[in-house]
Amino acid sequence: MAGTLLEVDGLTKRFGGFTALHRVSLSVRAGERFGLIGPNGSGKTTLINCVSGALAADGGRILFEGRDITTLAAHRRTRLGIVRSFQIPKPFTSMTVRENLGIPLEYAAHARSQAGDADAEAAEILRTIGLEAKAHLRPAELTQIEMRKLELARAMAARPTLLISDEAMAGLSSVEVDDILALLFRLNEQGITIVMIEHIMRAVMRFSERVVVLDAGERIAEGTPAEIVRNPAVEKAYLGE
């Protein structure tokens, strides 16, 4: 397929006797807005962890820009351009907001291309995200939504080609959800491919061009949001018969 950015091929992951992912395949096209959904425990987070390198897969392959990255360490994948944000924000607590961005700028973005003025780049990202006034605060002084924004800003600082957003909106008010959604749309317009894992159906369905549904570690459906909504298997997975 032309323009394939990420290709997951027959991915299997077991924890002891429990199979969390069973031969899951999917491919994400460059520039796409891709949704990944499924009930609790369906294996979404495990899949992300395998793609980002936090977990080692037990079977199958992961290709990024045509290159096999199945056994690559997580930080190397980040340098290649696969960057994730965490469901529960994990900021560097001893650093200011600005310094939080400094880590990916130094270790990921500039590890690839030497050029770049870290201060200017950080300032630019903070302006895009809307955190410029908070640059010198520590994460403990931020509100819930600001924490989510910091999580996204830090991911942006790694200069991703593929951004995996793991439930960036859980627990936010609907105004705040719109706020984050608008942000993700803007990032996508800048050419960043986005994989969104989300529980808030309204958000995923509005955002994604294509959606894959996982249930009990298997891929049960794929299609446009409209197709997914009408898919009986999906309905069954969510409502349990």
């Binding site: 930080h75 980040t78 340098r79 960057v83 965490f86 900021p91 650093m95 880590i103 270790y107 790694a158």
Partner: peptide
């Protein structure tokens, strides 16, 4: 700076490109 990042959160540091090991 890398050590400080992994002290704060090792998982996040690795995901931000820090070669933690």
């Amino acid at each position: 700076r890398g050590l400080a990042a992994l002290r704060d959160n090792e998982e996040a540091a690795e995901c931000m490109g820090v070669p933690t090991l």
